Simulated scan of single mutants.
Amino acid sequence: MTSPVKVYGPPMSTAVSRVLACLIEKDVDFQVIPVNMSKGEHKKPEFLKMQPFGQVPAFQDDKISLFESRAICRYICEKYADKGNRGLYGTSPLAKASIDQWLEAEAQSFNPPSSALVFQLAFAPRMKLKQDPGVIKQNEEKLAKVLDVYEERLGDSQFLAGDEFSLADLSHLPNSNYLLSVTDRGALFTSRKNVGRWWDEISSRDSWKKVVEMQKSP
């Protein structure tokens, strides 16, 4: 029996939840190791050996340590290619390239404005921090432009990288879920016919439902 891989960090974290969704899709056994960030556990020397930037998640598979959630997801898909959802990261060079380009779009174009909105609208109130209306307005406009591109793309294909659910779609789940379930900005998605249809499909996957349940656990 191989020991389960270890994911360090709280499921509430968008980056941690991205990795958890990937592991569930790939049917890989895992263990979540709590990291108390309010006590600064992510800045302690033993954690920094795994994640030198002091962020979550950190990931261990036997003697291998990795950081950065998208790189971890690619690794999981490659190492455990024959497990679970085999097409999650494509099965040909062209399929992988298509997934990679939309993963890059998520990381470079979608993530910055959506992360800013998640922080301002979902986390700042919980942390008793003042919201910045200028930051909210600016990033809402940026995200709308990105979603306009997605709307056009999703009129041509069922999912971002083609007609199969992939890592490209999965990577969008964490931030989108906060915007649609915790904030009043869900219309950014639902007002766009194709984006709304896409969101309904990807958010109803069993893997993501399990992650949401993990986020609700104390």
Rank of each mutant, 00 (worst) to 15 (best):
P57Y: 05
C77P: 04
R153Y: 04
F67H: 10
V19G: 04
L179M: 00
G186P: 01
G90W: 11
R70S: 13
V182P: 07
F53Y: 11
I72E: 04
K216Q: 12
R74T: 10
M214Q: 08
E201D: 13
T183P: 10
S157H: 10
V7N: 01
F159C: 05
M37S: 06
A187N: 13
G84F: 11
L154K: 03
Q101A: 05
M1G: 06
L147E: 07
W102E: 00
W208F: 08
C22G: 03
L117H: 12
W208L: 06
N177A: 14
I76H: 05
S92P: 09
S65I: 07
V212Q: 15
A71T: 13
T190Y: 08
A97V: 05
L143H: 05
K210W: 08
D156F: 13
H172G: 01
F110Y: 15
W102T: 02
L160C: 07
L170K: 02
E78P: 09
G87M: 08
E25R: 06
A81P: 06
G162C: 09
C73V: 05
L143W: 02
Q215T: 08
E25Q: 12
F30S: 02
D82I: 03
E201Q: 14
P45Q: 02
R70Y: 09
L170E: 04
N36V: 01
K26H: 05
F189M: 09
K216I: 07
M127W: 03
F123Y: 15
C73N: 12
V182R: 08
A58P: 04
K79E: 06
V135A: 05
I72S: 07
S191V: 00
N139D: 02
P34C: 03
K79W: 10
A107M: 15
P11S: 04
D148A: 15
D184I: 00
Y178D: 11
F159G: 07
